[in-house]
């Protein structure tokens, strides 16, 4: 697939998902287990993406400047620092560590 095909295909699927809820009778999705799995799916995917983004290097695991940066980010989120500032701080921590090692 080209980048454009990936971008368009994923976008069309995401729009279709949003439209679905306005078209289907709600009963099809009312089961509590289905609702619970959907909610947890979001959590699982985001957590997995964090892990891969922090530790993955192609097809291997690598501990480097990204890990302390993410730990700092977690601390800042716990202190209720706004999203944008945390993202910038994480980038700065990683960049500083790379500059001095």
């Amino acid at each position: 697939m080209t980048t454009w095909q990936i971008v368009i295909l994923a976008s069309v699927i995401c729009v279709a998902l949003k439209v679905t809820g306005y078209l289907v009778p709600p009963r099809a999705f009312e089961h509590p287990t289905v609702a619970r799995i959907t909610n947890l799916l979001t959590v699982a995917l985001l957590a997995a993406l964090i892990a891969v983004q922090t530790l993955g290097a192609g097809q291997s695991i690598q501990v480097d400047a990204r890990l302390p940066a993410v730990v700092v980010a977690a601390g800042l989120y716990a202190l209720r620092v706004p999203f944008v500032l945390v993202v910038i701080a994480a980038a700065a921590v990683a960049a500083l560590i790379r500059a001095f090692t």
């Binding site: 909610n39 959590v43 892990a51 990204r66 993410v70 980010a73 989120y77």
Partner: peptide, 29 residues
């Protein structure tokens, strides 16, 4: 690249209030 991980963490953070989501997050990671 660290900023991207921090961005994902920001999306995940508000969802980590109950034990079930915490367990799923740790296991999935």
């Amino acid at each position: 690249d660290a900023a991207a991980a921090a961005a994902f963490l920001g999306l995940l953070w508000p969802r980590l209030k109950v034990r079930q989501t915490q367990a799923v997050a740790v296991a999935a990671a």
